[in-house]
Write a protein that binds this DNA or RNA. Structure first.
Lengths: 147, 147
DNA sequence: TCCCTATCGTTCGGATGCCGAACGATGCCG
DNA sequence: CGGCATCGTTCGGCATCCGAACGATAGGGA
């Protein structure tokens, strides 16, 4: 029975704490653009092309009802458009507008700036390792295996 | 104008995402003990000795009303005791019970297990670097500078 | 001694973010 | 045509946090 490390020393703790810090800070920076963190996922996903709301929901790992709210706000900002699918009129294909693409660019600048904030005073070699390791630890996007 | 990295490639994104993942998983593991993640902070802080609820609030970075709920549940689990300060009867000094110390040990085991889960397949050298870098990035506990 | 004010814990209402059930509109297939 | 599935939407609920207000208690000055 070795001496136990306090919870503070666990990687899990650091991730939970830093995740919360990064989220709060990101939300703060995004508010200048009139965006919330969760909208960024929408803008990112739509870069590859139009997508139905249900596809978006599964990709982002949220329920369809959450997508409704996210898209409502983005439509109010004229960043995305809901376009009824002509062949299956139940589907709304979401399209990025020019404004949406511009907002997307801004969010990526914000993210880059936040990375600089977070990595200030971190050895560049370590920062590279960090980036790589975090990517490896991240479960593949959009796969929500429930119990 | 260099090509912008998508949000997915930012350290901030990885931290937010992994933080959420770790939090969910930690909550899941803790539920076997009848605990929530936020209670663990209380158990950890009280290891050093008794503490008033207000001290705990500032240390954990939450409002006093949140502490009330956290302590209510921990008292129901008989993990902590509220002891009226005899010299200043407004204060409740929170004390860890034996059951509380035992629960604390269990939570540290859970955290260690979660770390193993999260670091599975990660090079041990990289894992060490990760731990060190995350600790450095973490802002000092209990310092909530508001605007 | 007696107020006046500050502090501690508590209660309550509100904001936020997410889920799940139910429902209308629409599509599909026998 | 009729029954069933699917998409988007609405609604209520749950969890977590905050901030305002309040009672109990403390402390200092007239």
């Amino acid at each position: 029975m070795e001496p136990q490390q306090p919870w503070d020393d666990s990687v899990a703790f650091s991730l939970v704490r830093l995740g919360a810090v990064a989220h709060r800070r990101y939300a703060e920076l995004l508010s200048d653009l009139g965006l919330r963190p969760r909208q960024v996922g929408v803008l990112e996903q739509l870069r590859a092309g139009p997508m139905s709301q249900l596809e978006l929901a599964t990709t982002l790992g949220v329920t369809p009802s959450v997508v409704v709210d996210m898209v409502d706000e983005l439509e109010r900002l004229e960043a995305v458009r809901r376009v009824r699918d002509t062949v299956d009129r139940r589907r709304s294909n979401l399209e990025l507008t020019d404004r949406g693409r511009e907002l997307g660019r801004s969010t990526r600048e914000v993210a880059a700036g936040l990375d600089e904030e977070l990595l200030a005073g971190i050895d560049p070699d370590h920062a590279r390792t960090l980036r790589a390791v975090l990517r490896r630890m991240l479960p593949p996007r959009g796969l929500r295996q429930e119990a």
